[in-house]
Design a protein around this nucleic acid. Structure first.
Length: 544
RNA sequence: GAGCCCGUAGCUCAGUAGGUAGAGCAACGCCCUUUUAAGGCGUGGGUCCUGGGUUCGAAUCCCAGCGGGCUCACCA
């Protein structure tokens, strides 16, 4: 820790204060303090009590908390205690706490933890306050707290010193903008997890934990982190998904399983991506993707009610109604969001035939190219569209890949209200079951809220021979340089060979769902300790 | 990975026609027995992110680096 002169000075002064506090008969770092109430309990129980109520039935309390404000007034003073995200004012006067007690009070700093006992009253201005009779010193803040009104605003410091962020940036600080009410966000995140567990537990799913360290990183298309086990001299991957293990469990007869845990993907960081993120995955035997569409809507509604008590949520200044869902096939979504700028929308038939789509994209390319005045947005779209069109024309990518790319380019950003996008190309879905009537398409859906993907689900491919073929197709793509193509997993094929019943499974990004439910604009605001590049150490510090 | 923006006291921020730095809070000392972003008087505190360059002179202009934010690309 590199300290400034200011911080060293404050630290030294406060060490002296601790000595003085000990000289007053207090312990420097006592082991405990018995309270009668939490601050939250006092607020909920006595917030409506009048001054007369409090006077006639005198309520003695012992409470503790961190001092967040001190307003000294000669031989008396007010201070504000904070505990559990709740604040309560205390009033200390010399004639009530005695000479020693008041000496102690004067040695307190903002940030210190104390315990007080006394009785409740209302001040002249009507604020519920503890009239203090004894003060017990509990712990000292050896560093100065951030500015009391604005809190800790520097985004980098908030992430690096989340411990400060958490006690400074609460809804109780008037200057704190609602979107960085940090404590509340993480309380809600915990409620999301609890609600999900409750939902699945009630429906006969069992919660399981599958390996985070895997010899083959499967179940998704992503670059993994690698690690090594010394005793076995074994290279391992941090998992990118639990999927293949969870389906092995369904083979084993655990018909309904879920897991809530971290996935690790060695890819870029953005407002929607952190290298480690939390995923719910669940599998249900004898269900298909239609069943999971219904379940998804029900689950998200349930979680929203548990967390927020309502189905609407404000995200990026848009009111989102989690009670109303739209369902669109991927091809319909492309047709719906096809921009006029590219001419008339393609037809379903054109989107299902490589040759016809190639012609259609070439036409669109020409129409867009010949338009004289392009907006920046159109230029951006065009800039992404052109390579897609060329990939199809030069047969570098299959129809399926092109469809998926077109969908992401044209439709994804529009999916603000809850939308289920179903029927994906087989080429981008190596673990999904084909549609009986359209073998190039699979029974898969993703759902979108706020313009990004929150979940991915499908009827699970359970034919071991077909699965082997799909893995081989993936290996071929890997050969062609796609580092994220799926690896072969022989044991998974073996597991399928013992018989996986018809099963559907789904993964839901917990961080992103929490963003939607709390209005957080960055995934880093819903992860307590998001990954940051460490500050480069100075030579002096490295030598320590 | 690319583009744009930011980095000044512990914190929140001012400070450019380039003249070697300010406020509020916090800290320290004093006054104040119903305040609440309490108030009053006084004091201390800064490698202006780092390293180069231009200049008589750089927080300010230029270059490189470090850290961060946003947008885009990849992905969930």
């Amino acid at each position: 820790m590199s300290e400034s002169e200011f911080e060293r000075k404050v630290f030294t002064e406060r060490k002296k204060k601790i000595e003085q506090i000990v000289a007053l008969g207090q312990r420097a770092y006592p082991n405990s303090f018995a309270t009668t109430h939490t601050l939250a309990a006092i607020r909920s129980r006595y917030d409506n009590a009048t001054a007369e109520d409090l006077e006639t039935a005198r309520t003695s309390v012992a409470v503790s908390g961190r001092l967040m404000a001190i307003r000294q007034q000669g031989k008396a003073g007010f201070a504000q205690l904070q505990q559990g995200g709740v604040k309560l004012q205390i009033y200390v006067r010399k004639d009530a706490v005695g000479d020693q007690g008041f000496e102690l009070y004067k040695l307190l700093d903002i940030g210190d933890h104390i315990g007080v006992s006394g009785y409740l009253f209302r001040t002249r201005t009507g604020e519920l306050t503890v009239h203090v009779e004894t003060i017990t010193f509990l712990s000292k803040a050896m560093l100065a707290l951030p500015e009391k009104y604005h809190g800790l605003a520097d985004v980098e410091l908030r992430y690096r010193q989340r411990y400060v962020d958490l006690f400074m940036n609460t809804a109780l600080n008037e200057g704190t903008p609602a979107e960085i009410n940090v404590r509340d966000v993480f309380v809600k995140r915990a409620k999301v997890l609890a609600a999900m567990r409750h939902y699945f537990d009630q429906r006969g799913y069992i919660e399981v934990e599958t390996p985070m360290m895997q010899p083959v990183a499967g179940g998704a298309a992503a670059k993994p982190f690698t690690t090594h086990h010394n005793a076995l001299d074994l290279d391992l991957f941090l998992r990118i998904a639990p999927e293949l293990y969870l389906k092995r469990l369904v083979v084993g007869g655990l018909d309904r399983v879920y897991e809530i845990n971290r996935n690790f993907r060695n890819e870029g960081i953005s407002t929607q991506h952190n290298p480690e993120f939390t995923m719910l995955e669940f599998y249900q035997a004898y269900a298909n993707y239609h069943d999971l569409m219904d379940l998804t809507e029900e689950l998200i509604k349930f979680v929203a009610m548990e967390v927020n008590g309502k189905l609407t949520t404000n995200f990026n200044d848009v009111e989102i109604d989690l009670g109303k869902w739209e369902r669109l096939s991927m091809r319909d979504a492309i047709i719906k969001w096809w921009p006029d700028y590219f001419g008339a929308s393609p037809t379903m038939e054109e989107l299902s035939d490589e040759q016809k789509l190639a012609t259609r994209l070439a036409d669109a390319h020409e129409i867009a190219r010949s338009q004289p005045n392009k907006s920046q947005e159109q230029l951006n779209t065009f800039g992404i569209f052109v390579p897609i069109e060329m990939d199809l024309r030069d047969r570098r990518k299959s129809l399926g890949h092109i469809i998926a790319e077109l969908f992401e380019l044209l439709a994804e950003e529009h999916l603000i209200q809850p939308t289920i996008i179903y029927d994906f190309p087989l080429a981008v879905s190596p673990l999904s079951k084909q549609k009986p009537d359209e073998p190039d398409w699979v029974e898969r859906f993703e759902f979108y809220i706020g313009g990004f993907e929150l979940g991915n689900a499908f009827s699970e491919l359970n034919d071991p021979e077909e699965q082997r073929k799909r893995f081989e197709m993936q290996l071929a793509e890997r050969e062609r340089g796609d580092e994220e193509a799926h690896q072969m997993d022989e044991d998974y094929v073996r597991a399928l060979s013992y018989g996986l019943p018809p099963t559907a499974g789904e993964g839901i990004g917990i961080d992103r769902l929490t963003m939607v439910l709390t209005g957080a604009k960055s995934i880093r605001d819903v992860i307590l300790f998001p990954l940051l590049r460490p500050h480069k150490k100075t030579e002096a510090e490295s030598a320590e």
